[in-house]
Design a binder for these strands. Sequence first.
RNA 1: GGCCCCAUCGUCUAGGCCGGUCUAGGACACCGGGUUUUCAACCCGGCGACAGGGGUUCAAAUCCCCUUGGGGCUACCA
Length: 560
Amino acid sequence: MAVTRFAPSPTGYLHIGGARTALFDLLWARKTGGSFILRIEDTDRSRNSLTAAKQVMDDLRWLGIQWDQGPEVGGPAEPYYQSQRLDIYNRYIEQLLAADKAYYCFDTADELDQMRKKAAEKKQNFVYPRPSKFPDSADVEKAKAAGRDVMVRFCMPDEEVIVDDVVRGQVKFGGKDISDFIILKSDGFPTYHFACVIDDELMGITHVIRGQEHLMNTPGHIALQKALGFKTPVYAHMSITVSEGGGKMSKRDRAKVLKDAIKKTEGLDKEKLASIGGISAEELDKFITGDSMPDNPAVDAMAEFLNVELPEVNIVDFFKSGYLPQALVNFIALLGYSPSLANSPKTRPRLAGEAGPPVAQEILTLQELIDTFDPSRFNKTNSLFDRKKLQAFNMEHMKLLGEDELLSRYKDFLKVVKSPAAGADDALLKRILKASEGARTLADIDHKSRFLFTEDGKIEYNSKDVEKVLLKNNGEGLAMLAELKTLLSLLPVLNEETIEKMLRGLAEEKKVGLGKVAQPLRVAICGTTVSLPIFESIDMLGLDATIRRIERAINQFSGK
RNA sequence: GGCCCCAUCGUCUAGGCCGGUCUAGGACACCGGGUUUUCAACCCGGCGACAGGGGUUCAAAUCCCCUUGGGGCUACCA
């Protein structure tokens, strides 16, 4: 019975790394029949917001990661927002202060910077110079009167600290190398290090599964636990997901792509771009020169305006790109982790000619992930996020999903991307879904079927496709269209069968491949050479619209 | 710079802890072919890795050391 937690800082959308952490914590809690807690670490007043916390919760739920205790569901350790637990932290601060295990300090940011600089010059790690005598309450009053900030630092013991980590083994740290870190900020809020240790104890956390970026924080946390007489949970520091350019995958990746696009765009109207992003011209300049980064909505809006595709990083980005949560969950679960062969329900024996042990299948549902979960199987190596493979996973999960769930996912997607297909009735959408088998994402399906939801006069003809399919060889495609128009209007009944029969008949009569007949028709009704299967397409579009589009194409391109 | 972590195909990984069963397996990508009304999908085939160097051992992808490379942390952020 493990009690695990996901403890995000609500600074914006939930990103892929956070989702992966949350997933593994959920997996372990479910596997052991324990409890999974969501705790909001909003101790940075300048960067956290309530809407961001809500967004993170929406994203988690979309993924199917539901917490047992936390905001909106409650639980025995309420409240689950750290900003509402200040009195709790203060009690422990007092306790440490009284025991001389923590002390006040009054340095300004500038003074600290100076000390750090000096340490860097000496090629040393900065360690805060602990005063030989700790300031007392009189000193605090004096400092306050002088207008100085008051903070509290934890007095880090000199002894070696060993982190016994599930994935890394025993990692040793010299206590002397670790600075006396701040546990209470000058605004009266605890730092992450402190609040996290208190809450893990109070909430009965038994296992902490988190990213490797926290490994260096852990000795400090352990020292704090010892000083307070707390238990130390089991730690598992997972590998990190990195992006192509190297480095942790982060929102910066998206901003970088946008910035490069801005730099490459010639004759760009910067003022217009700034206004589209809802930022000032100065802010845009600062962004371009690399001094700052606009927030997510601004980045998204500008990218849309410039028509650049940004790499997905936040969970909503993946949603908007047409991925299924099942696929995403499956995929991130296999980054830095692989299920045990013995436990896998989908292990197959090895074939003749294959070396090694049996082979475990990769396409797994959340339940299968839970059933087979084994934290000892984390691997230590950082992994690169391969979107191509995610797409392949997405296709598999679309095939796996029942018709109804796929439909409801698709409708959610259409709404979010504001597709003109969003209002369509279920029967039509189901038909589109069926005709789209083999598509990689929901976005692909939407793109391929947009022609059904576009007014006849607003179909945009792709000039290359028009040239290739309609105009080439003295307009043989256009000539074909003329014949098709006649034949189509002569059909007694219009359905997939009759359309197919007619098209095949025409191709045979002309002694050409079906493509010579189908492609001109496709371009006429869709504007491009890529669409759903042609028979279906015509049937769904209807005879009248099909004829109108054929006429329009003939009129528009004859004599060119 | 300091401290810490890591190292198998292009990518995700199996195998490593218990050295021989590994001429290193799978998946994705890629390349070639087939199928085909487009794009996909689908089928068949191919390319492709134990970072380098030292040990230990009868034997090393597997154990040890060094080098190199990558990553993390180094905040009154979490």
